[in-house]
Design a protein around this nucleic acid. Structure first.
Lengths: 235, 235
DNA sequence: CGCCCTTTTGAAGAAAATCAAGGGCAGTGG
DNA sequence: CCACTGCCCTTGATTTTCTTCAAAAGGGCG
């Protein structure tokens, strides 16, 4: 069952046949657990395995000289976290577990073999990469206004959680502190707090105890200029 | 000779054999020219070809609701500009020619075939993608301070131009206006101007008539917190 | 010459950072 | 059982950075 998030994610990226699914299920995968705040992969490492987040949340981040850090992406169950192995590259950033995580690893050659053997799997892997890059671009494009940035991030995370079945009835768990949100958006936690209060006052969201509820999706997406097609780049 | 920038770029990404080089040279490539300010690819298109910039500069950009645009990446000769075809995805952003450009296109299947047949070519394509993603991440990480951002961008562009032989003696052509730099960094052209003046006053750079000269590389990289290894993710 | 595009300069205003401090809550240990 | 500690959220006051608005100057070109 631990591969289910991975399969769900791949299926959200390309239409897998039964044979594709069983090929993915049969591939040898080692599992590791990581505790909150533990590095899954560190900058400079050259992984020989492809890493996949099976449960829990993680973040890509980089430290700056002045001691601050910037989060450059959130990883949800089913996401690749270290695809670098496929081309023998080393990590230009680190990945940290945001809560307790289970991570699966697949040997570079085994991953390459199933991707070469099946066009849908090949497509899914590339599309996952393109989606990740598209997310980075959106973070840049909409990094102008703090109110909008915070709103957008919540839209994005909700949509991504939804794609792997982690939402129910307009709610989902967001295991992030306001400081982490600030590290992701380049804002101070103080300012994130004020923007969240504004979104709450506008009746757009509820967010308590790491539980997000979207109260008014249409207006939130309007305010946040959010349009989810970039998360599914093949449509 | 028009494929030379592409070959140079691939060679900077992975050690290609003679057979690899001739495989790339033999692949059927159609060439197109684009004039300054013309879209090479537009948001929403689903290209069936892989696009490669052979000469000139281009930029990835996205328009915002308020009419402003954000540049999310610069493309130099040799860079892939529409790799989306490999997995049948549509463009989530547009690409515009910044000066007169020549673009080559390779059919999806032909590109897939040479990448499957040769591990170095396969690696080069993936590494190009990872390098591009790494650049996006750095833009986010160092988007805090305007002085540093401008300095970093110049470092990055110089290093990338150098990788494809477009520098000489510490100088290179940067066909960007201050407004374009602002669109890339999320700054107003007015503020870009002031930051450039500051970098000039500090004796770090010269920049006149789109000609950049790095006067003090060591101090510029220090100020800009620039460390070029992310451009070569396999090292 | 006159027009457009780009760069440059100045002054005022807004968004977000910084600095500072208090409060709630869970876990820990005396 | 309660005090203590650490983490996270919240609020207020001040300061900095960058934007906005406005205008002028330089250069290329029809």
């Amino acid at each position: 069952m631990a591969t289910s998030a991975f399969i769900t994610r791949l299926r959200s990226l390309a239409p897998l046949s039964e044979a594709d699914v069983s090929a993915v299920e049969r591939v040898e995968m080692k599992r590791f657990t990581f505790q909150r705040r533990q590095d899954v992969l560190s900058k400079g490492m050259k992984p020989t395995f492809v890493y996949i987040l099976l449960s829990g949340w993680a973040a890509r981040y980089e430290a700056r000289r002045n001691g601050s850090r910037r989060i450059t992406g959130f990883l949800l169950p089913g996401d690749f976290c270290g695809i670098h192995a496929v081309c023998d590259a080393s990590m230009d950033h680190s990945i940290i577990a945001l809560n307790d995580c289970i991570v699966g690893t697949i040997q570079r050659e085994a991953m390459g073999a199933i991707a070469k053997a099946s066009q849908p799997i090949f497509d899914a892997v590339w599309r996952a990469k393109l989606a990740e890059e598209a997310i980075l671009r959106k973070w840049l494009v909409y990094a102008v206004d703090a109110h909008q940035s915070v709103g957008r991030l919540l839209c994005e995370l909700y949509a991504r959680a939804d794609a792997v079945g982690l939402t129910s009835d307009g709610s989902c768990e967001i295991p992030l502190t306001q400081e982490m949100i600030g590290d992701a958006l380049g804002l101070t936690p103080v300012h994130v707090n004020r923007m969240l209060q504004k979104l709450r006052a506008e009746g757009l969201i509820e967010l308590h105890d790491h539980e997000l509820k979207i109260l008014d999706a249409a207006n939130l997406e309007m305010v946040a200029e959010f349009e989810p097609s970039y998360l599914q780049p093949w449509h």
